[in-house]
Each structure stands twice: as structure tokens, then as C-alpha cells.
Simulated assay, not measured.
Amino acid sequence: MKIARIFFISLMLMHYSTCMYAQNKQASEDSHAVQLVIDKLFDGMREGDSAKVASVFGEEVKMYTSFIDKDGTKKIRKGTLKPFLKAIGTPHDEIWDEKIWDTKITIEGGIAQVWTDYAFYVGTEFSHCGVDAFHLIKNPENQWKIVHLMDTRRKEDCQVKSIGQ
């Protein structure tokens, strides 16, 4: 009886560890896929490629920016994807380079959340910093798409790291 109990417990532990390995592997693959979406967004911005940038977004996108205006008043500006894409695709002399670090990705089922610090440069000149917050969904084609993007913007108190993209 004791041997049967040990055998049963061993089988249960093997099953549990196999399930945990499969879940961890899927989570790691999803996390990597989500990071690739974020990287593609910023690569497209640097390249001025609005089609590349558009490819990472879902059909319905909500965009918000939080900032403090010149009078010191906190503001929230609602944006839309179309003007954002137009700005990226309109030729400009300097590269728009958004460097990110301390990126945190959380995934549950078919939704993901990304929170990352950033510093934005026009060419080599620092413009502003803040936090980007993304929500993504996994669509029926098994692709991660950004459906919600919020960011904060400030020019002061920026703890810009030299790492990033």
C-alpha cells in the first residue's frame, strides 16, 4: 500500500511539473511575442514607416497622454491612431527615437499589459521622458495587437538610462 501511495504521488508530481513547464514555456513565448510588437512599433517610428507602425495596432485603438501644461495644470489629451501614423509617415529631417528600459510585461489569457520607462529623442537631442503603458490583445489570428496606449510626458526629473533600444 505504501509503495502504491508513493507511486501515485510521484505520478502526480510528474504531471504537475509537466503542466507547469508547458505553462511557463507558453508564457515565455507570449512575453517574447509581446516584446517583439513593442520593438516593432519603435523600429517603425525610427524608420518613419507608418505601415510598420500601423501593423502592430488593433482595429480600435484608444490613446491618451498625461502631461502638465505651461500653467502647471495636469492634463489628459485623447489621441487617435490616424494622426499619429500620419506624423510618423510624414518625412522629417531627424530620426524619432524612443528608447525604453525597465519593461514589465504581464499576460493573462489573451490580454497583455506592458509598462515601460522611456526617453524620446529627435535625432540626438533629448525631447522628453515618461512612462508608456500598453494593453494588447491576442486576436483570432494568434497575433498580439496594441489596443490601448497611454503615456506620460515630462521634461524634468527624467532618470534616463543609457540602456534601451
Rank of each mutant, 00 (worst) to 15 (best):
I3M: 11
A4G: 12
F7T: 15
F7S: 14
F8V: 15
I9L: 15
S10F: 09
L11I: 15
L13R: 07
M14A: 15
M14Q: 11
M14W: 11
H15C: 15
H15T: 15
S17I: 13
C19W: 09
C19S: 13
M20P: 00
Y21N: 14
Y21Q: 14
Q23E: 14
N24M: 13
Q26S: 13
A27G: 03
S31W: 00
H32W: 09
A33S: 14
D39G: 07
F42C: 03
D43R: 01
D43G: 01
R46E: 14
R46N: 13
E47W: 02
S50Y: 13
A51I: 13
A51T: 14
A51H: 13
A51Y: 09
A51W: 05
K52H: 04
V53T: 08
V53Y: 03
V53R: 00
A54R: 09
A54L: 03
A54T: 07
A54M: 00
A54Y: 00
V56T: 10
G58R: 04
E59P: 10
E60C: 08
V61A: 06
K62G: 14
S66C: 11
F67C: 02
D71Y: 02
G72W: 01
T73G: 01
K74R: 11
I76Y: 03
I76G: 07
I76C: 04
R77F: 04
K78P: 04
K78A: 15
K82V: 13
P83S: 10
P83N: 06
K86D: 15
A87P: 01
I88A: 03
P91S: 09
D93H: 10
E94H: 13
W96E: 11
W96N: 11
D97I: 05
K99C: 12
W101L: 02
W101P: 04
E108K: 11
G109C: 06
G110R: 03
G110F: 07
I111G: 07
A112P: 05
Q113E: 08
W115Q: 08
W115C: 09
D117R: 02
Y118P: 03
Y118W: 06
A119I: 05
A119T: 07
A119W: 00
A119N: 04
F120W: 06
G123H: 06
G123T: 08
G123P: 09
E125D: 14
E125F: 06
F126G: 06
S127Y: 03
C129M: 04
G130M: 00
V131G: 00
F134M: 05
F134Q: 03
H135Y: 10
L136N: 04
I137Q: 09
I137L: 13
I137N: 10
K138I: 09
N139D: 15
N139T: 06
E141P: 01
K145W: 03
L149F: 12
M150F: 05
M150R: 00
T152R: 00
K155W: 03
K161H: 10
S162Y: 07
S162K: 12
G164T: 05
